[in-house]
């Protein structure tokens, strides 16, 4: 399947991939609002690792064929998509089903690439909303509660070219299939 591959030899550590990922995963899909207004603030699912001088690489989920995070997840929130939610075509990406995630961070422990992030924020409880993560169900409406969710690259389901790939000014990220 097509995933995003970084080319570290031409990554220039600008971190525009992170800005793009944040924008893409915001409610508004608007950079200014994503950074300045939205609460919870959207997280970037890629992280530019820098070793100075002159080495940087943007790392995000490899969507491993034998994904250890899926094996580690006891609520099956972390799962492999069989069919694309948008196009209905066979998929294979590893994604988090947020309503099932309890924030135990087992996937984070298991991921050999360290690309799963903790998404923690104080938000309003939704009462009995079934879309709430199990640990938060039933928590009072309007009450400020701590939400804990795993967050990782979902290969931008709403786009044909992932946001980070399109935003990278130096073509240091490529979206392709490799064996």
């Amino acid at each position: 399947m097509k995933i995003v591959y970084p080319k570290e030899e031409v990554c220039m550590a600008c971190r525009l991939c992170e800005v793009a990922c944040i924008t893409e995963h915001s409610k508004s899909k608007d950079t200014l609002k994503a950074y300045k207004k939205e609460n919870p603030a959207p997280l970037s699912r890629t992280l530019v690792e820098e070793i100075f001088p002159g080495l940087s690489v943007s790392v995000m989920c490899r969507h491993c064929s034998d994904a250890p995070c899926i094996e580690a997840c006891f609520t099956s929130a972390m799962h492999r998509l069989a069919l694309s939610e948008v196009e209905g075509k066979p998929d294979g990406r590893v994604i988090v089903n947020e309503p099932k995630c309890v924030g135990c961070w087992m996937c984070i422990m298991a991921c050999p690439f360290g690309v799963i992030k903790r998404n923690q924020y104080i938000g309003e409880g939704q009462g009995d909303n079934p879309l709430n993560p199990p640990l938060l169900r039933g928590k009072g409406k309007g009450q400020e509660i701590k939400v804990k969710l795993s967050s990782k690259c979902d290969l931008c389901p709403d786009r044909s070219i992932p946001a980070c790939v399109e935003a990278c000014p130096n073509k240091a990220l490529v979206h392709e299939e490799r064996n």
Binding site: V10, M12, P53, G54, L55, N170, K171, A172
Partner: peptide
């Protein structure tokens, strides 16, 4: 712009293919 420099951090700004 990563052109007239040999600093590896800056030189990477020029992706030869691009």
């Amino acid at each position: 712009w990563g052109i007239t420099t040999n600093d590896p951090y800056l030189a990477r700004r020029q992706n030869p293919e691009l």
